[in-house]
């Protein structure tokens, strides 16, 4: 018998009685979603910009210091083309990556990004500074609401909640472990 058959047989021999799967109730949400997500993100070392005027101008202002820019947001040009981004060494140069978030979670600051919004899966991780644009209407209270809004499950999808960090040396927090050292969120 194969390992699969052996494992499954050991399980079926136990003849376990199925336990009931609980329903997940609706939990009470936050009154002010934007204030809540802003506070949560700021607590996780994220710069939050509430965009009052033109989004593109706000982004351009924030990325002006960077030479290597990749944008998956309309209206912002990448300084690197697709050919450039085929080599790992060029990917390693990326300083600013700008992406659209699909769902924002007020309770923990997590923002859902499906791979179709990333251009390449590695980009939100390898960039020095990650910029995420999120629409006010797409902010929800908690993870239950967030998952219920994800109607299409992508090949890869990410909840990102801050710049890369670690506290593995004596529990002292260092922002910028392997991934982005900075993260900025634009709320539109």
């Amino acid at each position: 018998m194969s390992s699969k058959e052996n494992i499954l047989k050991r399980i079926s021999d136990l003849d376990l009685q199925p336990a009931r799967l609980p329903e997940i109730p609706q939990f009470e949400g936050f009154d002010n979603l934007i204030d809540t997500i802003t506070k949560t993100l700021e607590g996780s070392h994220v710069k939050v910009t509430s965009v009052k005027g033109n989004l593109i101008d706000s982004i351009k202002q924030e990325i002006s210091e960077y030479e290597y820019v990749v944008s998956a947001v309309k209206g912002i040009d990448s300084t690197m083309n697709e050919e450039d981004l085929k080599s790992k060494d060029s990917l390693n140069k990326v300083e600013a990556m700008i992406i659209n978030g699909k769902v924002g979670v007020a309770e923990n600051g997590a923002i859902w990004v499906p791979e179709s919004n990333m251009s390449q899966r590695i980009l939100p991780f390898i960039t020095l500074h990650l910029f995420v644009v999120i629409q006010k209407e797409s902010i929800v209270s908690n993870m239950h609401e967030a998952y219920s809004k994800i109607s299409e499950i992508p090949g890869f999808g990410l909840f990102v909640a801050g710049p890369s960090k670690t506290a593995d040396i004596e529990q002292s927090l260092v922002v910028g472990a392997h991934g982005p050292k900075r993260m900025t969120v634009f709320i539109v």
Partner: peptide, 10 residues
């Protein structure tokens, strides 16, 4: 509140 990266692989 959540890990920085919650990655969903399909």
């Amino acid at each position: 509140a959540i890990t920085n990266y919650t990655s969903h692989f399909h």
